[in-house]
């Protein structure tokens, strides 16, 4: 059995160290080693987006990233999106727009959408659909998700102005 590697990361702004086998995915490390089970597994081969996290601000499917690749990276998971007790505008607008049914895809969508809105405050519907095309949702038909992202973008622009 291969030995474990010591990995140092910044997860949700907390310096975090963990041990991982070279064969373990970042998804596995987050869920099983660090108990950050908000990141979901839908396919383990990069095709559903449920495991999306931000790595140095970029969305990645954590099932396709090895744990060892996270060395020195800054990772944001769904557990780190709210500011203390205040939900992120995306979280709030997902709730108010009924953009989740079963909710298993929600963490991945929120992180992917956050990556988009952090770069582009006012994306078109087409742009949102394109950006979120790697995230599958089987429950909603995407309509309310797209609307929630548009709504959150408006709130965030508002906040930025204030």
């Amino acid at each position: 059995m291969p030995g474990k590697v010591h990995i140092h990361t910044l997860i949700n702004n907390q310096p975090t160290d963990f041990l991982c086998e070279p064969r373990q995915s970042l998804l596995e490390c987050l869920r099983d080693t660090l108990n950050l089970t908000g990141t979901k597994e839908g396919c383990n081969d990069g095709n559903c987006g449920a495991c999306t996290v931000l790595m140095d601000g970029r969305p990645v499917t954590s099932c396709l990233v090895l744990g060892v690749e996270a060395q020195d990276a800054a990772i944001t998971t769904i557990e780190g999106v709210a500011k203390g007790n205040t939900l992120h505008p995306l979280q709030q607008s997902f709730l108010e727009n009924a953009a989740l049914q079963c909710g298993i895809c929600t963490p991945g969508f929120i992180l992917a959408a956050k990556a988009l809105l952090d770069q582009e405050p006012d994306p078109s519907e087409e742009r949102i659909r394109f950006y979120l095309a790697n995230n599958l949702c089987r429950c909603t038909g995407y309509d309310k998700i797209i609307r929630a992202v548009q709504d959150a973008a408006a709130r965030m622009r508002e906040e930025a102005r204030a």
Binding site: G38, V81, A98, G103, T106
Partner: peptide
């Protein structure tokens, strides 16, 4: 009316425990 669901906060913060999350 259209109230926010009772399990909503848990589901947008990653706290809700699904099948594979059980430890």
């Amino acid at each position: 009316t259209r109230p926010v669901r009772h399990d909503g906060a848990d589901k947008v913060t990653g706290r809700a425990i699904y099948g594979a999350d059980f430890q």
